[in-house]
Nucleic acid binder design. Structure first.
Lengths: 165, 165
DNA sequence: CCATATATGTCAACATGACTGACGTAAAAA
DNA sequence: TTTTTACGTCAGTCATGTTGACATATATGG
């Protein structure tokens, strides 16, 4: 049970290592969301608004279904948040060219500005962490993070432009 | 604006790289919490219960203040969740030896069992990702994740046992 | 053409987990 | 002895998630 060479229980090390991973995820996510959350609160928005703005900005012309698939929430939950963003002029909807049942989503200028305001902090945080850790560490980070995501849901980078809708 | 050697705009690459980081965090956290959330729902609990159980299990004898500092929520928010866990026999409170105002928190046997049930999935997920990515990648992952956490809040590993309270 | 499936939206009711603000108690510290 | 600290509680509010039921417009397959 105890390694003869190191005098350390390897199972304990493994357990400790995995718990460290759990905690890193918790703390990183906590701090990663705290800054945008504070800005959002000033606008009467919440984290859900940020997520919608982010992904619509990232995938202009995406459908509501696409967004539901990414966020993994119900359409009723999304509709409240999306409705607010449309009403307040952050997002526009237009019918799909091939399938007119679809409402293709896009950021307005105002939405783009808000996206920048919110995401800028997160980009800065990541840039700092990447810079401090170095290119090799970043590669490792990416590998592990991709492995944490359910197979089949792993995003492909770089994101390709949206196809004809 | 365009790199002569690669024909690629380095600013675009950097932007893409950072957005990838944002998305990796979102997707990893989404999938990381989904499994325990599903189990918790069966018990009428939510993610907040898991966090309390996790950190109390990790730091037996921790105070309510310690927990508030980690979770970064208000005592009113914590009290409901913590109260439920105490009422239902997952957590015990006992007064501190040196400072009897404190309520030192510990998992009961039932709480320990629940902790294992919930965290086991997350440990397995991390173990898989670590195994697939390799030791070097794991080191890079740790470096980057620590850099994402606010300075001063970075956990030190391994966690040392709690001092005399 | 008609029946069915799909994309989206809406109404209603509810749970969870966060918040603020105010007030209370017991114990420690000055 | 006064003040501060650790913790709890009551009350109200908000954001974000859930289910379930129903509606509308459009696409698609027999």
């Amino acid at each position: 049970m105890t390694d003869v060479k190191t005098g350390i229980n390897p199972l304990f090390l493994r357990e400790e290592e995995l718990r460290q991973g759990i905690e890193l995820l918790f703390f990183a996510y906590r701090d990663f969301t705290a800054e945008p959350d504070a800005i959002l609160a000033e606008y009467g928005f919440g984290r859900a608004h940020h997520r919608v703005i982010y992904f619509v900005g990232r995938n202009p012309g995406m459908t509501v279904s696409d967004l539901l698939g990414i966020l993994r929430i119900t359409k009723q939950s999304l509709s409240r948040v999306l409705g607010q963003l449309v009403d307040e002029g952050f997002i526009t909807q237009r019918p799909g060219a091939r399938d007119r049942r679809q409402r293709l989503l896009e950021l307005t200028e105002k939405g783009t500005e808000m996206e920048r305001l919110l995401t800028e902090r997160q980009r800065a945080r990541i840039a700092r962490a990447y810079r401090e850790a170095g290119a090799e560490a970043v590669e490792g980070f990416r590998k592990v993070m991709l492995g944490l995501i359910d197979e089949g849901d792993r995003p492909r980078f770089p994101v390709r432009p949206p196809g004809r809708r």
